[in-house]
Simulated assay, not measured.
Amino acid sequence: MRSWRLDRPVLQGQLDLSRATGLVSSIGSDDSNALAAEVLKLLGDIAAISQCTIFAYEFGNRPRTVSVADHRGGRFLRDVADTYARHFYALDGNQKIVSSARNDKPGATLVLHQQTSDDIVNEAYRAACYQQPNVSDRVSLLVQPTADIWLSVNLYRDRRFGNYHPREIALIEAMAPLIAHAAKHHYAICGQRDMAISHLMLARVRGVCPELSKRELDVLTGVLEGLTAQEIGDTMGIKATSVVTYQKRAFRRLGISSQRQLFALCVGHGRI
């Protein structure tokens, strides 16, 4: 597992003009999967990339799937992305980058992160997100369009071809600024429209109490969405009793004692 900043564009590599045009034309498309599909067309043949998923990490919440593309088609990769967002995102090496670079100037940072199947310690995470989708390696392009929001363009390598070779990493680096700018502009057009209201509401909660853990934020998201403790537990893969524990802990940190007070805090009425 490794990560590195791409501080200056790599001015090498060939660019297929028709595929670059397709990438630009997908920005703001009504087809939510068009952007990932065009990224896959741009890079798939030259780096043996079989899948692409674009996630938005917004205000410390669970990642939201923005766009997916898989050579096999169908819902398979979308289901894998949903499983990742529900159960495993906190184990992703991307999280360390997102959480440790909050003070960087938004829009100025492009980070590449490589995470192979062998880097995954958690067996369930490795099975669900690498072995079942037939992935051996992943390179993520991480870009921050605005404060507290990150986009991750994940490029998955087909297991038949092993891990990425240095030449293929160099090709990804060459295309990374183009892909990152496309993702940022797409998010600027569609991001706010598609963002869940609960995520927007939690932005204020995190401002009041930055110490809230990811588990606590996930539980509060479910509360704001009107889910029961059992439904939240099913989504997170934990027991309903654990959900109640996380909720009580979060309420205590926030200085509140009820869901009504949580909603009041989210809409800007301050501490109750």
Rank of each mutant, 00 (worst) to 15 (best):
N94F: 10
G13I: 11
Y156R: 11
G107C: 02
S198G: 00
Y84A: 03
V143M: 03
M195T: 13
A264Y: 11
A196V: 06
L11Q: 12
A20G: 09
N163V: 12
R204D: 00
T235G: 08
A37I: 05
A174Q: 02
P106N: 08
K184W: 10
P63R: 15
L91E: 06
F55N: 06
C52G: 03
L217H: 03
Q114F: 04
S26V: 10
L17M: 14
V267L: 13
V24A: 12
G74Q: 12
K41Y: 06
I149F: 11
V80L: 07
D148S: 15
A250Q: 08
L112V: 08
R2Q: 09
D45K: 13
E225R: 09
N94M: 06
G60D: 02
F263S: 15
S242H: 10
G22R: 05
A108C: 12
G74L: 11
Q247W: 14
I179A: 01
T245K: 13
E216Q: 09
Q12F: 11
S3F: 10
A147T: 15
L77G: 01
S25A: 15
L40Y: 03
L77M: 13
V80E: 00
R64W: 09
E58Q: 12
Q230A: 14
G74V: 07
H165S: 08
R252Y: 15
N61Q: 13
T235W: 02
R5E: 09
F76I: 09
T53Y: 07
I238Y: 04
R193G: 09
V68E: 02
L220H: 01
I232L: 02
A196S: 09
V24M: 07
I169V: 07
D148G: 13
N103S: 13
P177D: 13
T245Q: 14
P133S: 00
N163R: 03
R86P: 08
A180D: 13
F161V: 04
R62G: 06
A101I: 06
R253K: 15
I256R: 02
R157H: 09
L220N: 01
V121C: 08
G255C: 14
A101S: 15
T21W: 09
G255P: 14
I238M: 08
S50D: 06
I197H: 03
L217Q: 00
V143E: 10
T245D: 14
V153F: 03
L142Y: 11
A264I: 10
Y89D: 03
L155C: 13
L35F: 03
R159M: 10
R8I: 05
Y156T: 14
I49F: 02
N154M: 11
L91D: 04
D16L: 09
D82R: 05
H269V: 12
D137T: 00
S99A: 08
V39P: 04
Q192Y: 15
L11M: 14
V143Y: 04
L151E: 00
V66N: 14
D148L: 11
Y57S: 04
S257P: 07
A69C: 10
R2S: 02
V111M: 07
H186Y: 03
E173V: 07
R126I: 02
V223R: 01
L110R: 05
P63N: 10
Q259L: 13
G237M: 03
T83G: 06
F161D: 02
V98K: 01
R249P: 15
Q259P: 10
A20Y: 07
P166N: 03
I46S: 04
A85W: 06
F76K: 11
A108I: 11
I272N: 12
A47I: 05
